[in-house]
Write a protein that binds this DNA or RNA. Structure first.
Lengths: 234, 234
DNA sequence: TGGTGTCCTGACGAGGCCCTGACAGTCCTG
DNA sequence: CAGGACTGTCAGGGCCTCGTCAGGACACCA
């Protein structure tokens, strides 16, 4: 599939109940090259954040759940930058929002250019911080995966993987130990919609296990697969 | 809970030519527990950033070197969050600053509380991102829940949960100690309307208690369930 | 054109998992 | 204290998911 030469576009979830604003923001962000999902209330917003996107643009005042509550629950799920967009602009509001776990606070009405600039700045910051300790070589037991060179060793012995097998393994290695949903794998590795039933994924997982040992990939029944354990994160 | 005993306090370099402001900021930041170095121009500011601090608070207008130029040179050295503090507050200024590599833009005059909150937010974001994502781990007594890996330990022993059981537990862990209504759980975990009478939820709660101990989930009669206590929030 | 390597498909079996429904126990309310 | 509503428990049927395998489609190359 597409290699790392294509920096796949960041996915942003916009949670904003005012439809006109949500549409305008989504339109602009899409024009900037982002993949955008829109939700108009907290509940569906949280649903849209599964799997976690690269950034969440959140309104404070939502019809059902408070924006800060949405933020807290996102925090419980994983690491996502959250940008709060709100008309509550007093200093105490800003402080409250940031203390609640929001990463940036933006005052309404917002200039589109500033909005885009702040989104890019947040994504860039996270990228920089992540990239630091990020080794391109992963270890899963006696298996060594060199993502850049697209090579895999098992017990100091070179193992040949086909392109698809490697893409699948590399995707699982992005976050060692983390479970990746079947639908996510189908989308990222095969560029398929989630709902096509197919044995393709299982077949390739089976092939990985045959070549690298059954332990490398863990099945999470009804959810997806994971490679390695969190402790092996390297 | 915001002032955990920090192992080593974050070091912040303040580069600001207006001495009164610089002193006031430094005073406040030290009171907040940070280690602060102050510089009054770009050149000595860059010198103060060797070795790189944990965060740089930068004025745009400096007597010798432009603030953005300072930021660029810092970027060349490594990964530091840079917060720009400036009287240039037009949207185009913000965009220009962010595009130049600044991580946050703060308008002068600045409220001290907002300044501190933004600094904390930036440090927290970098911390989270460096932690390689597998951050959200919840502790409920002797039970440890790893959301990303979908794994649960009880007394250092791995416990197997089925998909639904884990989803239920994870939903309860999103707000440790908070009571979640039955209807909410049925909607979030099962995607069911609230009014269908069913023993499904109780059955799964029972299974959780059997596997993890009766204490993990508390029943609130007539309302719903809760996991853990607010103090155990992590 | 035939050979090779790769990928997808579809069928099948095994096993895991979830829901159901009845009953017992518990809690609240009048 | 009695009644009713809510919750805990349990076992089994049935659905759904996963692992496996062989066969065919497709591309690439000599």
């Amino acid at each position: 599939m597409d290699t790392e030469t294509t920096p796949d576009p960041a996915r942003i979830v916009v949670v904003e109940d005012e439809e006109a604003l949500a549409d305008a923001v989504a339109l602009r962000l899409r024009a900037e090259g982002f993949v955008v999902d829109v939700a108009h209330d907290g509940t569906s917003g949280l649903a849209a954040c599964d799997p976690l996107p690269d950034l969440v643009l959140l309104d404070w005042m939502l019809p059902d759940v408070d924006g800060l509550e949405v933020c807290r629950r996102l925090r419980a799920r994983g690491d996502v930058p959250v940008l709060l967009l709100t008309a509550r602009t007093a200093e105490s509001d800003v402080v409250e929002a940031l203390a609640a776990g929001v990463d940036d606070h933006l005052r309404k009405p917002v200039g589109m250019r500033e909005l885009v600039a702040r989104i890019r700045a947040l994504l860039r910051l996270v990228d920089r911080a992540r990239g630091d300790g990020h080794a391109p070589v992963h270890r899963l037991g006696d298996v060594v995966v060199d993502v850049a060179a697209r090579r895999v060793q098992r017990a100091d012995e070179q193992v040949h993987l086909t392109a698809t097998e490697f893409d699948l393994l590399a995707r699982l290695c992005e976050r060692p130990g983390a479970v990746v949903a079947r639908a996510t794998l189908l989308r990222d590795v095969w560029d398929l919609p989630a709902d096509v039933p197919s044995r393709t994924l299982d077949t390739h997982v089976g092939e990985l296990r045959r070549k690298l040992g059954a332990e490398v990939v863990r099945t999470v029944h009804g959810v997806g697969y994971a490679a390695g354990t969190p402790e092996e994160a390297s």
